[in-house]
Amino acid sequence: MSRHERRLAERAERPSGQRRRAASSRPPRSVPSIALITIVAVVLGFGAIAAFQFLNGGDGDPSGDAGATLLVPPPTIPATVVVDGHTAGSPDAPVLVEVYGDYQCPVCARFAREYLGRLVADFVVPGDVRLVDRTIAFLGRGDPDESEQAAVAAACAGAQGAYWPFHDLLLWNQAGENRGGFAASRLAAMADKLTLDRAAWDACIADPARLDVIRRDTAEAATAGISSTPTIVVDGQRIVGMPRTYEELAAVIRARLATVVAPAVP
């Protein structure tokens, strides 16, 4: 006999007055418990959503993160490497590695922080790879579009030979997407951090032609089917997303190098 059945049997043995009370109290007792659970669950649900909002920095107040001091990252490209705007490495390098990224994309930042420095040290410094950073701006929302503004700011730093340091600053100082992390004031703080010529940089970012270039590049990448960032292209071979390990990426580059650099056959 189950506990429920036993309870029912006990109830049946009680005097009729008690039985009536017990019978009438049964349905109401279960209804409030569902109502109570519903109320508690709704409260907890709202609590969970509020916690989620709060832990992701909140929607309304971008100044908290954006006002934070800028992290100054170690340079991705050492001073010995030849740099031309957004490319780095010898123009004669046998393999071309292109990195497509949006400055607001958190995985791009991880890629830059965890893999890019090693890639430069292993392949760009020895002259095997020429690295091209291809900016696409597709994560920005609203006006100003922070992905586009960041891309323009970097391009204008590039006009002063400081593309890569600006690239590093941006990717190490992300502060959430579209909430002021790359607001004009913060981008200007980055320009100052790198002691750029502010008058020239200010004029450059105000030039609509710069934005046109970013938009054109973004559209071209989309046409070519690059729809997520980072996408790494090794001489035309695409790796979509962050490779699981650095070694996985290095192996692709090494394999390509082996086919391109024909062994000196006697």
């Binding site: 659970i37 519903t38 508690v40 669950a41 709704v42 907890l44 649900g45 709202f46 969970a48 959503i49």
Partner: peptide, 8 residues
């Protein structure tokens, strides 16, 4: 109850 939280 948990399902209700999950749904929200």
């Amino acid at each position: 109850g948990l399902g209700l939280i999950g749904m929200m």
